[in-house]
């Protein structure tokens, strides 16, 4: 007798799943649509308009916050990816050595501490340092962001290293490639997708951060997230929706980027 359903069928799961996807996308879709609303109401459609994009683009605070966000994300993503690559190369594919667990725990430490705890701890320390040294530049933010981005950059790089075939580098060595050339022409190209994934993950993590930045920054160091958080107490204008629309576009583009690179360079 033929079965009515495949063995994997569970009644109602499909409905829940589809509802979940609607739940995940509906709020973002509404925000996206209302970014183009000519009126100010979050529920009444007042016609199509780009006025909120214009007002965001003309808002000096939004511009400088955007620039700072991107600058900070770029610097800390480059720094953390570089550090993470070096550490991953030294720690993966080698027999376990003394201090491995200690180094690994240190690198993944920022993942285990609630953000708010790191934030207040950094607040205390940076406030003291500002008092001592008089320096109140971007350095504190760069250091804080780089530190919490290191594990995010490290994990994809390590994952890639673990799936890489070590015999290829051995073969390069057997064919008299110098260690540096073997690294440059064999290891590096194979590792690149991992490094790119680590970089993007670190970049997005930095761009996304609001709590740690909020506590470490001084006056005039608003990033886009802290600027928006500061707007909470005032009436929300659809300007925030316009910024959200741009952010959404960036994140979709980055996810696609990782997806395409992974598809193209799958290690069989």
């Amino acid at each position: 007798m033929a079965k009515a359903f495949p063995v994997t069928h569970q009644r109602g799961f499909g409905t829940v799943a589809i509802t979940t996807f609607i739940f995940l996308y509906a709020p973002l879709a509404v925000a996206l649509v209302f970014a183009f609303n000519a009126g100010t109401s979050p529920a009444k459609w007042g016609g199509f308009s780009l006025r909120w994009f214009q007002s965001a683009a003309n808002n000096q605070q939004v511009i400088s916050a955007s620039i700072l966000s991107l600058k900070l994300a770029a610097i800390s993503a480059i720094l953390s990816t570089t550090l993470a690559t070096l550490a991953a190369l030294a720690m993966s594919r080698t027999p376990r050595f003394r201090g491995w667990t200690l180094a690994y725990s240190a690198i993944s430490f920022p993942l285990m501490v609630p953000e708010i705890v790191t934030a207040v701890a950094l607040l205390v320390v940076t406030a003291t340092f500002r008092g001592w040294t008089g320096y109140s530049g971007l350095g504190y933010l760069v250091l804080a962001h780089t530190a919490f981005c290191v594990p995010f950059a490290y994990l994809p790089i390590r994952a890639r290293l673990q799936t890489m075939d070590i015999s290829l580098e051995r073969a390069a060595g057997d064919l008299y490639a110098s260690p540096w050339n073997a690294f440059r022409f064999v290891t590096m190209p194979l590792l690149f997708p991992g490094i790119l994934a680590g970089f993007i993950l670190a970049f997005v993590t930095s761009l996304d951060d609001v709590v740690i930045t909020e506590f470490v920054k001084t006056a005039g160091q608003d990033t886009l997230p802290t600027y928006m958080l500061g707007q909470v107490r005032r009436t929300i204008t659809p300007e925030v929706n316009a910024i959200a629309a741009v952010f959404l576009l960036i994140s979709v583009a980055l996810v696609m980027c990782i997806y395409v690179v992974n598809q193209r360079t799958k290690i069989n």
Binding site: L79, S80, L83, A84, L86, A87, A103, A106, I107, F109, P110, V113, T118, A121, L122, L143, A144, T146, A147, F148, V150, P151, Y154
Partner: peptide, 11 residues
């Protein structure tokens, strides 16, 4: 270097 940054910036 990676460990040092995490020590200064978090631990």
């Amino acid at each position: 270097p990676a460990v040092l940054v995490v020590i200064i910036g978090a631990i």
